[in-house]
Protein backbone atom coordinates (compact mmCIF):
# COMPACT_ATOMS: atom_id res chain seq x y z
CA UNK A 1 0.00 0.00 0.00
CA UNK A 2 1.65 3.16 -1.05
CA UNK A 3 -0.51 5.94 0.18
CA UNK A 4 1.72 8.92 0.62
CA UNK A 5 -0.24 12.09 0.86
CA UNK A 6 1.10 14.60 -1.59
CA UNK A 7 0.61 17.73 0.39
CA UNK A 8 2.71 20.78 -0.29
CA UNK A 9 4.09 21.94 3.02
CA UNK A 10 5.12 25.52 3.46
CA UNK A 11 7.02 26.54 6.46
CA UNK A 12 4.88 29.03 8.19
CA UNK A 13 1.34 28.47 7.09
CA UNK A 14 -0.10 25.30 8.58
CA UNK A 15 -0.52 22.79 5.78
CA UNK A 16 -4.04 22.72 4.42
CA UNK A 17 -5.49 19.33 5.14
CA UNK A 18 -5.68 17.50 1.84
CA UNK A 19 -8.67 15.53 0.70
CA UNK A 20 -7.02 12.28 1.68
CA UNK A 21 -6.01 13.54 5.08
CA UNK A 22 -9.50 14.75 5.78
CA UNK A 23 -11.04 11.43 4.80
CA UNK A 24 -8.22 9.22 5.99
CA UNK A 25 -10.30 7.16 8.37
CA UNK A 26 -12.99 6.60 5.80
CA UNK A 27 -10.66 5.69 2.95
CA UNK A 28 -7.98 3.67 4.64
CA UNK A 29 -10.07 0.55 5.23
CA UNK A 30 -10.99 0.43 1.56
CA UNK A 31 -7.40 0.75 0.48
CA UNK A 32 -6.44 -2.04 2.79
CA UNK A 33 -9.33 -4.16 1.64
CA UNK A 34 -8.85 -3.59 -2.07
CA UNK A 35 -6.30 -6.28 -2.97
CA UNK A 36 -7.87 -8.98 -0.82
CA UNK A 37 -11.39 -8.23 -1.96
CA UNK A 38 -10.34 -8.00 -5.59
CA UNK A 39 -8.64 -11.39 -5.48
CA UNK A 40 -11.60 -12.88 -3.73
CA UNK A 41 -14.12 -11.45 -6.15
CA UNK A 42 -12.20 -12.68 -9.18
CA UNK A 43 -11.40 -16.16 -7.93
CA UNK A 44 -14.30 -17.03 -5.66
CA UNK A 45 -17.37 -14.86 -6.06
CA UNK A 46 -17.37 -14.44 -9.82
CA UNK A 47 -16.84 -18.16 -10.52
CA UNK A 48 -19.93 -18.97 -8.47
CA UNK A 49 -22.02 -16.80 -10.77
CA UNK A 50 -20.30 -18.24 -13.82
CA UNK A 51 -21.12 -21.76 -12.69
CA UNK A 52 -24.74 -20.80 -12.31
CA UNK A 53 -24.63 -19.50 -15.87
CA UNK A 54 -22.85 -22.61 -17.18
CA UNK A 55 -25.52 -24.84 -15.72
CA UNK A 56 -27.99 -23.58 -18.33
CA UNK A 57 -25.80 -24.73 -21.19
CA UNK A 58 -25.01 -27.93 -22.94
CA UNK A 59 -21.25 -27.67 -23.43
CA UNK A 60 -18.51 -30.27 -23.85
CA UNK A 61 -15.79 -28.04 -22.42
CA UNK A 62 -13.96 -27.57 -25.68
CA UNK A 63 -13.60 -24.12 -27.16
CA UNK A 64 -15.76 -21.39 -25.68
CA UNK A 65 -19.14 -21.92 -24.07
CA UNK A 66 -20.74 -19.09 -26.04
CA UNK A 67 -19.64 -20.39 -29.42
CA UNK A 68 -19.47 -24.15 -28.85
CA UNK A 69 -22.13 -24.44 -26.18
CA UNK A 70 -25.86 -24.55 -26.59
CA UNK A 71 -28.30 -22.76 -24.30
CA UNK A 72 -30.75 -25.31 -22.93
CA UNK A 73 -32.44 -23.47 -20.10
CA UNK A 74 -33.38 -25.71 -17.22
CA UNK A 75 -32.86 -28.93 -19.10
CA UNK A 76 -29.83 -29.97 -17.03
CA UNK A 77 -31.85 -29.60 -13.85
CA UNK A 78 -34.77 -31.45 -15.35
CA UNK A 79 -32.42 -34.32 -16.13
CA UNK A 80 -31.07 -34.34 -12.59
CA UNK A 81 -34.45 -34.54 -10.95
CA UNK A 82 -36.41 -36.29 -13.68
CA UNK A 83 -38.74 -33.36 -14.31
CA UNK A 84 -40.48 -32.39 -17.51
CA UNK A 85 -40.42 -35.84 -19.02
CA UNK A 86 -36.68 -36.34 -18.54
CA UNK A 87 -35.45 -39.51 -16.91
CA UNK A 88 -34.12 -38.86 -13.41
CA UNK A 89 -30.37 -39.34 -13.23
CA UNK A 90 -29.75 -42.39 -11.14
CA UNK A 91 -26.12 -41.50 -10.54
CA UNK A 92 -27.17 -38.15 -9.17
CA UNK A 93 -29.53 -39.87 -6.76
CA UNK A 94 -26.78 -42.22 -5.63
CA UNK A 95 -24.50 -39.25 -5.05
CA UNK A 96 -27.11 -37.35 -3.12
CA UNK A 97 -27.89 -40.35 -0.98
CA UNK A 98 -24.21 -40.95 -0.28
CA UNK A 99 -23.76 -37.31 0.63
CA UNK A 100 -26.48 -37.74 3.20
CA UNK A 101 -24.66 -40.76 4.65
CA UNK A 102 -21.50 -38.69 4.78
CA UNK A 103 -23.25 -35.82 6.55
CA UNK A 104 -24.84 -38.00 9.20
CA UNK A 105 -21.99 -40.39 9.87
CA UNK A 106 -19.29 -37.76 9.70
CA UNK A 107 -20.90 -36.08 12.68
CA UNK A 108 -19.76 -39.09 14.72
CA UNK A 109 -16.39 -37.37 14.71
CA UNK A 110 -17.77 -34.91 17.25
CA UNK A 111 -18.68 -37.36 20.06
CA UNK A 112 -15.65 -39.48 19.19
CA UNK A 113 -13.41 -36.44 19.42
CA UNK A 114 -14.97 -35.47 22.74
CA UNK A 115 -14.47 -38.97 24.05
CA UNK A 116 -10.79 -39.02 23.20
CA UNK A 117 -10.35 -35.50 24.52
CA UNK A 118 -11.86 -36.56 27.86
CA UNK A 119 -9.61 -39.58 27.89
CA UNK A 120 -6.51 -37.47 27.28
CA UNK A 121 -7.40 -34.54 29.52
CA UNK A 122 -5.02 -35.55 32.29
CA UNK A 123 -1.73 -34.29 33.53
CA UNK A 124 0.32 -37.46 33.71
CA UNK A 125 3.90 -37.59 32.47
CA UNK A 126 4.30 -37.35 28.71
CA UNK A 127 0.67 -36.54 28.09
CA UNK A 128 1.65 -33.70 25.77
CA UNK A 129 3.35 -36.12 23.45
CA UNK A 130 0.30 -38.36 23.53
CA UNK A 131 -1.94 -35.46 22.66
CA UNK A 132 0.19 -34.50 19.68
CA UNK A 133 0.41 -38.04 18.44
CA UNK A 134 -3.32 -38.50 18.71
CA UNK A 135 -3.73 -35.36 16.66
CA UNK A 136 -1.27 -36.62 14.06
CA UNK A 137 -3.75 -38.02 11.48
CA UNK A 138 -5.15 -34.55 10.84
CA UNK A 139 -1.82 -33.22 9.61
CA UNK A 140 -1.45 -35.89 6.97
CA UNK A 141 -2.76 -35.33 3.48
CA UNK A 142 -6.09 -37.01 2.73
CA UNK A 143 -4.39 -38.59 -0.26
CA UNK A 144 -2.09 -40.50 2.04
CA UNK A 145 -4.92 -41.34 4.45
CA UNK A 146 -6.92 -42.71 1.52
CA UNK A 147 -4.03 -44.84 0.29
CA UNK A 148 -3.32 -46.23 3.73
CA UNK A 149 -6.92 -47.19 4.34
CA UNK A 150 -7.32 -48.75 0.94
CA UNK A 151 -4.43 -51.07 1.76
CA UNK A 152 -6.02 -51.70 5.10
CA UNK A 153 -9.19 -52.81 3.30
CA UNK A 154 -7.55 -54.94 0.58
CA UNK A 155 -9.46 -58.13 -0.09
CA UNK A 156 -7.63 -61.23 1.21
CA UNK A 157 -4.51 -59.38 2.34
CA UNK A 158 -5.91 -56.30 4.03
CA UNK A 159 -5.49 -56.15 7.79
CA UNK A 160 -9.12 -55.15 8.21
CA UNK A 161 -10.23 -58.08 6.07
CA UNK A 162 -8.07 -60.44 8.10
CA UNK A 163 -9.44 -59.09 11.37
CA UNK A 164 -13.06 -59.32 10.31
CA UNK A 165 -12.23 -62.83 9.16
CA UNK A 166 -11.32 -63.74 12.75
CA UNK A 167 -14.82 -62.98 13.88
CA UNK A 168 -16.29 -64.74 10.91
CA UNK A 169 -17.48 -61.74 8.92
CA UNK A 170 -16.66 -61.92 5.28
CA UNK A 171 -17.28 -58.89 3.14
CA UNK A 172 -17.53 -59.89 -0.46
CA UNK A 173 -15.05 -58.07 -2.65
CA UNK A 174 -13.30 -56.47 0.30
CA UNK A 175 -14.73 -53.35 1.85
CA UNK A 176 -14.01 -51.12 -1.13
CA UNK A 177 -15.15 -53.66 -3.69
CA UNK A 178 -18.50 -54.15 -2.08
CA UNK A 179 -21.19 -51.67 -3.12
CA UNK A 180 -22.96 -51.98 0.23
CA UNK A 181 -19.91 -51.30 2.36
CA UNK A 182 -17.59 -49.20 0.24
CA UNK A 183 -19.06 -45.81 1.18
CA UNK A 184 -18.93 -46.67 4.87
CA UNK A 185 -15.34 -47.75 4.45
CA UNK A 186 -14.44 -44.41 2.95
CA UNK A 187 -16.34 -42.50 5.62
CA UNK A 188 -14.46 -44.44 8.30
CA UNK A 189 -11.20 -43.36 6.71
CA UNK A 190 -12.42 -39.77 6.73
CA UNK A 191 -13.49 -39.99 10.35
CA UNK A 192 -9.97 -40.76 11.43
CA UNK A 193 -8.46 -37.29 10.78
CA UNK A 194 -11.76 -35.55 11.47
CA UNK A 195 -11.99 -37.10 14.94
CA UNK A 196 -8.48 -35.89 15.62
CA UNK A 197 -9.55 -32.39 14.66
CA UNK A 198 -12.59 -32.47 16.93
CA UNK A 199 -10.45 -33.87 19.69
CA UNK A 200 -8.06 -30.94 19.59
CA UNK A 201 -10.97 -28.51 19.62
CA UNK A 202 -12.37 -30.15 22.73
CA UNK A 203 -9.01 -30.40 24.44
CA UNK A 204 -8.67 -26.66 24.08
CA UNK A 205 -12.25 -26.22 25.21
CA UNK A 206 -11.75 -28.42 28.27
CA UNK A 207 -8.74 -26.37 29.23
CA UNK A 208 -10.94 -23.35 29.54
CA UNK A 209 -13.71 -25.00 31.52
CA UNK A 210 -14.27 -22.99 34.67
CA UNK A 211 -12.76 -25.06 37.53
CA UNK A 212 -14.89 -23.30 40.13
CA UNK A 213 -18.09 -24.38 38.47
CA UNK A 214 -16.80 -27.93 38.30
CA UNK A 215 -15.93 -27.88 41.98
CA UNK A 216 -19.25 -26.34 42.87
CA UNK A 217 -21.08 -29.02 40.92
CA UNK A 218 -18.97 -31.65 42.60
CA UNK A 219 -20.00 -30.36 45.98
CA UNK A 220 -23.59 -30.62 44.81
CA UNK A 221 -22.90 -34.28 44.23
CA UNK A 222 -22.77 -34.22 40.43
CA UNK A 223 -20.31 -36.57 38.85
CA UNK A 224 -19.63 -38.75 35.86
CA UNK A 225 -22.08 -38.53 32.98
CA UNK A 226 -24.35 -36.15 34.82
CA UNK A 227 -21.57 -33.69 35.38
CA UNK A 228 -20.53 -34.05 31.75
CA UNK A 229 -24.00 -33.44 30.42
CA UNK A 230 -25.14 -30.60 32.64
CA UNK A 231 -21.93 -28.77 33.47
CA UNK A 232 -19.18 -29.56 31.01
CA UNK A 233 -20.91 -29.83 27.64
CA UNK A 234 -22.74 -26.50 27.97
CA UNK A 235 -19.41 -24.87 28.63
CA UNK A 236 -17.96 -26.56 25.56
CA UNK A 237 -20.58 -25.01 23.31
CA UNK A 238 -18.18 -22.83 21.31
CA UNK A 239 -15.95 -25.86 20.62
CA UNK A 240 -18.95 -27.94 19.63
CA UNK A 241 -20.12 -25.23 17.28
CA UNK A 242 -16.78 -25.06 15.47
CA UNK A 243 -16.53 -28.85 15.41
CA UNK A 244 -19.97 -28.99 13.83
CA UNK A 245 -19.10 -26.42 11.18
CA UNK A 246 -15.79 -27.97 10.15
CA UNK A 247 -17.27 -31.46 10.14
CA UNK A 248 -20.16 -30.48 7.89
CA UNK A 249 -17.79 -28.77 5.50
CA UNK A 250 -15.50 -31.77 5.60
CA UNK A 251 -18.39 -34.11 4.81
CA UNK A 252 -19.47 -32.12 1.78
CA UNK A 253 -15.90 -31.80 0.54
CA UNK A 254 -15.31 -35.52 0.49
CA UNK A 255 -13.65 -35.48 -2.93
CA UNK A 256 -10.09 -36.52 -2.14
CA UNK A 257 -10.86 -39.76 -0.34
CA UNK A 258 -13.43 -40.95 -2.88
CA UNK A 259 -11.14 -40.13 -5.74
CA UNK A 260 -8.15 -41.92 -4.21
CA UNK A 261 -9.89 -44.92 -2.67
CA UNK A 262 -12.47 -46.01 -5.22
CA UNK A 263 -12.78 -43.46 -8.00
CA UNK A 264 -16.53 -43.63 -7.40
CA UNK A 265 -16.68 -47.41 -7.86
CA UNK A 266 -17.58 -50.22 -7.64
CA UNK A 267 -20.09 -49.48 -10.37
CA UNK A 268 -20.53 -45.95 -9.18
CA UNK A 269 -21.79 -46.85 -5.72
CA UNK A 270 -19.47 -44.51 -3.81
CA UNK A 271 -20.06 -41.37 -5.84
CA UNK A 272 -20.73 -38.20 -3.92
CA UNK A 273 -21.81 -34.90 -5.43
CA UNK A 274 -18.35 -33.35 -5.32
CA UNK A 275 -16.89 -36.33 -7.12
CA UNK A 276 -19.75 -36.51 -9.58
CA UNK A 277 -19.15 -32.92 -10.66
CA UNK A 278 -15.55 -33.76 -11.41
CA UNK A 279 -16.47 -37.00 -13.12
CA UNK A 280 -18.94 -35.30 -15.44
CA UNK A 281 -16.53 -32.58 -16.49
CA UNK A 282 -12.80 -32.99 -16.10
CA UNK A 283 -12.51 -36.77 -15.91
CA UNK A 284 -11.56 -39.02 -18.79
CA UNK A 285 -15.11 -39.65 -20.00
CA UNK A 286 -16.64 -36.43 -18.70
CA UNK A 287 -17.14 -33.70 -21.28
CA UNK A 288 -20.55 -32.54 -19.95
CA UNK A 289 -19.57 -29.25 -18.38
CA UNK A 290 -23.01 -27.70 -18.27
CA UNK A 291 -24.47 -30.74 -16.59
CA UNK A 292 -21.62 -30.88 -14.12
CA UNK A 293 -22.18 -27.21 -13.31
CA UNK A 294 -25.81 -28.00 -12.51
CA UNK A 295 -24.69 -30.66 -10.03
CA UNK A 296 -22.22 -28.19 -8.55
CA UNK A 297 -25.02 -25.68 -8.11
CA UNK A 298 -27.07 -28.22 -6.18
CA UNK A 299 -24.10 -29.00 -3.97
CA UNK A 300 -23.62 -25.27 -3.43
CA UNK A 301 -27.26 -24.83 -2.45
CA UNK A 302 -26.99 -27.62 0.11
CA UNK A 303 -23.89 -26.00 1.51
CA UNK A 304 -25.66 -22.64 1.50
CA UNK A 305 -28.08 -23.92 4.13
CA UNK A 306 -25.19 -24.53 6.47
CA UNK A 307 -23.37 -21.37 5.48
CA UNK A 308 -26.49 -19.34 6.26
CA UNK A 309 -26.83 -21.01 9.61
CA UNK A 310 -23.21 -20.33 10.40
CA UNK A 311 -23.41 -16.70 9.32
CA UNK A 312 -26.61 -16.23 11.26
CA UNK A 313 -25.05 -17.44 14.48
CA UNK A 314 -21.98 -15.33 13.87
CA UNK A 315 -24.25 -12.37 13.32
CA UNK A 316 -25.91 -13.01 16.68
CA UNK A 317 -22.47 -13.01 18.29
CA UNK A 318 -21.50 -9.80 16.57
CA UNK A 319 -24.67 -8.10 17.68
CA UNK A 320 -23.99 -9.25 21.21
CA UNK A 321 -20.46 -7.95 21.06
CA UNK A 322 -21.49 -4.46 20.15
Amino acid sequence: MTVSPVVPTTRYTPPPRGWYKRNEIAITPWLFLAPGVLFFLVYVIAPIYQSFGLSFYNWNGLGDVRTNGEYVGLQNYNKLFGLNGERADRNFQISLWNNLKWLVLYLLAIPAGLFIALFLNQTVRGIRIYKSLFFFPFVISQVVVGLVFSWFYLPNNGLFTIMTGWVGIEIRGGVLGNPTWATYGIIAAGLWPQTAYCMILYLTGLNAVDPEQVEAARLDGAKGPKMLWYVIIPQLKPATFIAFVVTIIGALRSFDLVSIMTGGGPFGSTRVLSYYVFEKSLSERGLQYGYAAAVAVILFLIMLVFISYFLWSMYQDEKGAR
Partner: peptide, 9 residues
Protein backbone atom coordinates in the same frame (compact mmCIF):
# COMPACT_ATOMS: atom_id res chain seq x y z
CA UNK B 1 -17.08 -22.53 2.90
CA UNK B 2 -18.15 -22.81 -0.70
CA UNK B 3 -17.71 -26.26 -2.25
CA UNK B 4 -14.67 -26.28 -4.52
CA UNK B 5 -16.57 -27.87 -7.34
CA UNK B 6 -18.65 -24.82 -8.07
CA UNK B 7 -15.46 -22.87 -8.69
CA UNK B 8 -13.72 -25.62 -10.59
CA UNK B 9 -14.58 -24.99 -14.23
Amino acid sequence: FVPFQILMV
